[in-house]
Amino acid sequence: MKATFQVPSITCNHCVDKIEKFVGEIEGVSFIDVSVEKKSVVVEFDAPATQDLIKEALLDAGQEVV
């Protein structure tokens, strides 16, 4: 499964690193693409990962998800 999250609070590479760390810890996540320019995060994943778990990880990383 693939999901795109709009994350307007992404401003720098530190944000990218933190997002990759938090989302990458979720079992089932196979790909993460964070774009500072587009302020988006694209995640490819399989169970047990879910969109809700990914959104929670983004929030835990200090990001706003819309």
Rank of each mutant, 00 (worst) to 15 (best):
C15L: 09
V65P: 07
C12R: 08
N13I: 15
V43C: 03
V36W: 08
V34C: 11
G28P: 01
T11F: 15
Q6K: 11
E37T: 10
F5S: 00
P48R: 04
S40D: 04
K18P: 04
D33Y: 15
K55S: 05
I32E: 00
I26Q: 02
V66F: 08
K21R: 11
G62K: 05
V66N: 07
Q63D: 04
E44K: 10
D46A: 13
T11A: 08
D17H: 11
I32Q: 00
K38E: 09
L58E: 03
E44P: 04
E44A: 10
K55I: 14
K55A: 07
V36R: 04
D52L: 11
I32P: 00
K2V: 11
K2R: 13
Q63L: 14
E37D: 09
V36N: 03
S35N: 11
C15M: 12
G24I: 06
E20N: 15
E20M: 15
A47H: 12
S40M: 14
A49K: 03
M1S: 10
Q51S: 11
D33S: 13
I54F: 03
E37K: 09
G24M: 12
K21A: 08
V7H: 03
A49E: 01
E20A: 11
D52Q: 13
N13H: 14
V7T: 05
K38T: 11
K21I: 07
D33Q: 12
I19M: 03
A47T: 08
Q51W: 15
V65N: 05
K39M: 09
K21L: 08
G28R: 00
Q6C: 15
V66R: 09
E44D: 06
K18G: 03
S30A: 10
N13F: 12
N13S: 13
T11R: 13
K18Y: 06
D17L: 13
I54P: 00
A57F: 04
T11P: 10
V65M: 08
V7L: 09
D33F: 15
K39V: 04
K39H: 08
C12I: 07
S35V: 06
V16A: 08
E25G: 11
C12P: 07
F5Y: 07
A49S: 02
I32N: 01
P48Q: 03
F22M: 08
K21M: 08
V16L: 06
V34G: 02
F22P: 01
A61H: 04
T4P: 04
C12G: 14
F31E: 05
S40C: 12
I54N: 03
E27W: 07
E20C: 10
G62E: 06
D33L: 13
V29K: 00
E44Q: 09
G28D: 02
F31T: 08
Q63F: 15
L59A: 08
T4L: 11
V43Q: 02
T11D: 08
I26E: 00
D60A: 15
V29H: 01
V41F: 04
L53Y: 05
K55P: 02
E37P: 07
D52M: 12
V34P: 03
K2S: 09
K2Q: 07
K2A: 06
V41Q: 01
V34I: 09
P8W: 08
Q51T: 13
T50S: 06
A3D: 05
Q6R: 13
E25P: 05
V43S: 00
V34K: 01
L58A: 00
V16P: 05
E37F: 10
D60H: 13
K18M: 10
S9P: 04
K21D: 04
L53Q: 11
D52P: 05
I10T: 04
